[in-house]
Design a protein around this nucleic acid. Structure first.
Lengths: 244, 244
DNA sequence: TCAAAGCAAGTGTGATCACAAATCATAATC
DNA sequence: GATTATGATTTGTGATCACACTTGCTTTGA
């Protein structure tokens, strides 16, 4: 009866081998499109074609159409009556609508997270803050992509701590929807004054490390409101100019 | 120059003809599955196969797999590592998580709606309430399906008035996720005591017609919490029994 | 000269097929 | 007799094809 011995051996092997995983092509396409959307690589109102994307991603149309369908249901893309799909255009109403929803849900998430984040999690987000400073130190080239990625890591590291399997996908959906807008704002920030985003994040970290849920929520609201109000005034100015 | 005359004739025709619309098979499959999910026609933990559903819906696999993919992204279904898909099982944590999210988001939606609902909208939900009473009057047969449908119409008529294109899809997603659970609760209600759901709805209508956002939110919370807390205690009892 | 008809290229949708992985039942082995 | 192999069936995934609709351009007619 070597059963126990065999079992033990298997466990030893299992401990050394990493699970290989089995990501489908569709999953990769979906992730890639998500990344592009959140990063703002597509412009608002830009139309996307299945075959065009399939060529760009070097696959067939099959995985692309399923990924597009999924993105449409989470409102990251929009299905036109012509059956073509585009990234949703920016309007003032939509901007306000998105911001309100993000304040509501991300605010709740960070309030929950404030009570649950241990020193381990705090350290992680402080590391991200450190990378941010590092990037800022050598400011010869403006790496907007990296800026977007770090911002995303910072926020989602916090949201992950809220412990809600329901809220997190909703927040992802909201980021997907606001991604194309935000990129525009970040570019504009980089050109105009460039208030330091890190200072907002630092206030969030301070609030979280003292488990002050209310302060954390308020700091977060200030952080995410900034690009929206900025974009809002820019849009209004553009609308006023069109009027004349 | 008959141009104006022709134009006029075309308009006359357009006024009489209804737009035919062009719903795809995939859309119909998706709607049908949504209906089934919200109505609780599938049991939690039930696994669904593409070919099985395609046979049941009398189409090919193509529209079904795309509809399933969409439902998976909105967490209405769950993709297992085996690549099979099932309706998510009920757990205590998930129940609490869903209720918290629903209170947060639907509460916000009804508060927004309170300020925006006119006499027209109030009349509509009162009509739905009337149909409910009518159904209750002839209580010889318990029509759970109709009960579910009326409840859905009542709530979404309100949510539609909140004017947020972002919040409403989120609420739909939440209903999709809690549908399979709620059905269990409604069945249990029908057997056990059967407190009148309509009285909760009436309190909501009263609050809305006086534009009292706070009262509306509280009444709504009471309404949607009921099946959840009921189910919660039932689950805990079952867990306790399993322990022994 | 300009608008409408006609044609051609492009695009989304659904069906079918090929293949790989999973599942289940049966058979073989210790 | 319990466990492991082996085989058949089922299932999801991706590719390809056929068809219908849209779109943009050219051509035709007044």
């Amino acid at each position: 009866m070597q059963k126990a011995a065999i079992e033990k051996n298997n466990e030893a092997i299992a401990a050394q081998l990493a699970p290989v995983g089995r990501e489908t092509v569709q999953d990769r396409v979906y992730s890639e499109l998500r990344r592009a959307l959140i990063g703002g690589l597509f412009e608002p109102s830009q139309v996307l074609t299945i075959r065009g994307l399939a060529d760009a991603l070097v696959t067939s149309t099959m995985p692309v159409r399923e990924a597009l369908g999924r993105l449409i249901t989470e409102k990251a893309l929009e299905a036109l009556p012509n059956r073509s799909v585009r990234v949703p255009p920016i309007t003032l109403e939509r901007l306000d609508d998105l911001l309100r929803a993000r304040i509501l849900i991300e605010g709740e998430a960070i309030a929950l997270a404030a009570a649950r984040m241990g020193p381990r999690q705090i350290a992680t987000i402080e590391t991200i803050l450190g990378e941010w400073d590092e990037m800022r130190a050598l400011k010869h080239k403006k790496d907007v992509d990296r800026e977007v990625t770090l911002n995303q890591s910072f926020h989602f590291e916090i949201y992950r701590s809220c412990g809600s399997a329901v809220l997190i996908p909703m927040i992802e959906s909201l980021w997907l929807q606001s991604g194309p807008c935000i990129r525009v704002a970040i570019y504009a920030f980089s050109e105009a004054g460039e208030v330091d985003t890190a200072q907002y994040h630092r206030r969030i970290v301070t609030a979280l490390s003292t488990q002050d849920a209310q302060a954390a929520r308020e700091s977060l609201v200030a952080d995410i409101s900034r690009p929206f109000t900025f974009l809002r005034s820019k849009l209004q100015a553009a609308a006023a100019k069109d009027q004349t």
